[in-house]
Write a protein that binds this DNA or RNA. Structure first.
Lengths: 161, 161
DNA sequence: AGGGATATGTTATATATTAACATTTTACCA
DNA sequence: TGGTAAAATGTTAATATATAACATATCCCT
């Protein structure tokens, strides 16, 4: 079954239920493949993150979870987030101390985000070899061996202009 | 007087006293030009930041300042940092919640950093139009209007390899 | 069923940042 | 030159973010 073709996440009107469903299905498949356990807590956190394309903070997740289960403590959420990050299911947005669902979790990859100051949505670039290549070129010019990268662009998204 | 020519900051052996001196002199000139006040507190914080090329956290600055003046409270440091950032004298490293001296504060600019996992030093790229262009190109392809960008690459610097 | 590995619960604390209001210092000009 | 508004700093407290450490439960394998 081929993945759903869907407009970029900045397109404000889209069938977001499909985003969520696809993300959960992809997560199940990833975890099955990796032999990691997609427990109900982890699933619930991932679902909450996918409620929108806006990065959410750990503490807003804690608040949400407390509506369902009173004494949800920080480690619960941070552990789930750690798991989801390790399995490429969510990305951390460093400039916001927040987390957003990964839109193509199939394999580990460097990520680049465009984050709208108006609607707060974050869009992950797909297949942006251009930026990656530019970074790799600069690094090798300097003799720097890359292990990870953070690229977060803020501004106004097309739908908000 | 032309600026000192100096090897890139990742070169572990360099005359770091000159880095500090140049940074302070540049700060004086910037502030004079902008009509902003380079008070002794701000100068002291900038000097502390420039003790090395390693990004420092706000709290490590507070600790340092407390050795000189017992009751230094967080707002003291955060205000100085705010001023220094506004005047392009320091950059914030989002992925570390830490601050590092700007190596070319003459005018506002987008910054890109390479951060070594071994020696913890951060090097700011100079004139890296390549990365900026790649980002601009991607953004305009998507119709995204950039207002700021965060580019932080981690890995191993040449001196540490 | 036993037992080690993994996950979750629980309590406490560390780290990072800002709000709000009081006081002091500076710049400027009447 | 002294009055005053703006800017800077002091002070107290609160909020936001993240992790340590240890206890208990659950899962998976044989």
């Amino acid at each position: 079954m081929s993945p759903t073709v869907r407009p970029p996440s900045f397109t404000h009107k889209h069938n977001h239920a499909a985003c969520i469903a696809d993300a959960i299905k992809a997560a199940e498949q990833c975890c099955a493949q990796n032999g990691t356990r997609f427990t109900s807590q982890r699933r619930r956190v991932l679902e909450l993150i996918w409620q929108s394309h806006k990065p959410v903070t750990a503490y807003s997740l804690i608040k949400s979870l407390r509506k369902e289960k009173e004494n949800t403590e920080p480690p619960t959420v941070y552990r789930a987030l750690e798991f989801l990050q390790e399995n490429n299911l969510v990305h951390r947005i460093e400039s916001l101390n927040a987390f957003v669902g990964c839109e193509h979790p199939e394999k580990e990859h460097r990520s680049q985000f465009m984050i709208c100051n108006q609607c707060d949505q974050a869009m992950e670039l797909r297949n942006s070899r251009r930026i990656e290549n530019a970074i790799s070129t600069e690094a090798s010019k300097l003799g720097f061996a890359i292990s990870s990268s953070t690229v977060e662009i803020t501004g106004i998204c097309p739908s908000c202009q």
